[in-house]
Structure formats: C-alpha cells, structure tokens
C-alpha cells in the first residue's frame, strides 16, 4: 500500500487554508500544496503532482464540483482521489457529492487535530478499493 505524502487543498478562505496547512503538515506529516481558486487548480495540480486533492465546495468563480470536472478532463489528473470539504453533510448531500466522483466528504468545520487522520482514512479506502 502506498503511503500518502502529497496533498493539495483548494480553498478560497485564507484563514482556513493556513490552519489546514498547519494541521496537515505538522500533525499529519504531509507535504501540502495550497491553491486559492478552482480555475488555478488544474495547472497547479499538474505541476505539483498530488496523491490526493481536497476541494472546498463553495468558492467564488469556479466552485468545487466544477473544479472536479475540470480535473477529470486532464489525463494526468483523471485518477487522483478527490474529497470535498463542506458544511453540507446531510446523507443526501454526501451521496450527491459522491455521485460527482468524489471519494468522500470531510465535514466542516474540521478539527485541526484530527484533519490529517480523516484525510488518511479516506486515502486508505481508495487504496483498498483499487
């Protein structure tokens, strides 16, 4: 099984970006690339080569679902697992996000102490599945 090392997080709120980076790097020991808007995600992801991508759902301009679609259109990024970060976590909402092709949903607000574990859990699930 592959170890998860490289994660990219697309999020428009600077404070959330900062705390997520800190949580994933320091608590989780991951290498993190931050991206502040959906329409930059494709180029940045191709450049950085993440093993997993976390997408905020509600962003100005290109939102999470559209960003996922754009990522899927690129051969290099087609198979990278993507998880949504959102406050909308009703069962039907989670189902909807999964139907778009996400491996899972991480609920906002997240706890900085456990975020990296949640990301790793999702990662393991995709590894088992493949």
């Amino acid at each position: 099984m592959n170890e998860l090392v490289r994660v990219m997080y697309v999020e428009d709120e600077p404070d959330i970006r900062a705390v997520a980076k800190l949580a994933l790097e320091v608590v989780g020991g991951l290498t993190v690339e931050l991206c502040e808007q959906g329409d930059r995600a494709v180029a940045q992801a191709e450049n950085f080569g993440p093993q997993m991508i976390l997408l905020d759902v509600m962003m100005p301009g290109m939102d999470g679902p559209s960003t996922l679609k754009a990522l899927r259109e690129r051969p290099l990024l087609q198979n990278i697992p993507v998880a949504f970060m959102t406050a909308k976590v009703q069962p039907h909402e989670i189902e909807h996000f999964k139907s778009l092709g996400a491996v899972g949903v991480i609920a906002k607000p997240f706890d900085p102490m456990t975020l990296s574990q949640q990301v790793r859990d999702l990662w393991k699930k995709t590894e088992v599945a493949s």
Partner: peptide, 11 residues
C-alpha cells in the same frame, strides 16, 4: 453564513 458555519468551529 455558510462560510461562517464551515469555519468558526475550526477556530
């Protein structure tokens, strides 16, 4: 409100 609900808890 959505942003606030998604962020405040983290802080």
């Amino acid at each position: 409100l959505h942003k606030l609900s998604g962020a405040a808890g983290t802080f």
